[in-house]
Amino acid sequence: MISKFLLPSFSFLLLFLFGCADSGSPNGTETSESVGSNPNSDVIVFGAYTADKASDVVEEFAPTINWLESEVSAILGRPIEIRMKIANSYLAGISDIAIGKAHFSRLGPASYIHAADENPGLEILAMESKKGERTFKGLIVVHKDSSIKNLADLRGKSFAFGSPLSTIGRYLVQDLLISNDIYSSDLSNFAYLGRHDSVGMAVAAEAFDAGALKSSSFKALIKEGYPVKQLLSFDNVTKPWVAHPNLDPEIFSAIRQAMLNIRPEQAKVLDIDGFLESGPEYYDNIGEAMKRAKHFDDTAKITSQ
């Protein structure tokens, strides 16, 4: 009698157990992937802004940030997570570091001045080193067939600027033009094209007679065959990496230590060869140039693309 029901009962039990086992937790949350989420680690935010595509910025900075994360964790002896926050504009980026949405950020010199104006408490972690120097060149470029030979020849020509907030793209080149008594009214036309490569491409397209961009962008354009040539260069200060005052001092020190000790091959991804100690004084002339550049276009119409 018992054996009659044994098999089906056993089968039923097996099926039931198999059926009930691991039903998939229909009400549970699934996290199929997490990246280093360690509830016990300090999370700091690195702020960057999209001068170009945000993904490019991530691509540009992710290796360095990941390296920095491990270096700082090693220095501190505890896990540190560094998140990236990409601002979609210079102003957003400046705002993020100024108000502390980002713990530390890489700024252009002019952006740093703006950010420092908003939050004088910002501290410079280090400044980028280009060939061991704290300066690098900005360029005024013309079409390769342009007859413009000097700054004076720019009088009555059209000129493409970068971002209105760009150090090279606006402030230093305008300061240079002013120093050569060329104001916006002396140009036939001028516009703020935003990106450095946009400036180069516009000049190559002879949309503008001349433009100002960073040397790396110029080299990239040359490499791609754009018909532009350098008119003249001018010095710019390398970019500072700044920290918000709310960054833990210990972490601040660890970041600075790591940056100052970065290996050239690691720094190469940023198109630099390392970091140098820095301070606000290295950016004083930028501030002054920015003040002077305000006079370039007192009455000019500013076109920003």
């Binding site: 996290t31 992937e33 997490s34 990246v35 280093g36 989420s37 992710a62 998140r83 990236m84």
Partner: peptide, 8 residues
Amino acid sequence: PINYLGQH
């Protein structure tokens, strides 16, 4: 999670 290039 939204991860990109090792960054969350």
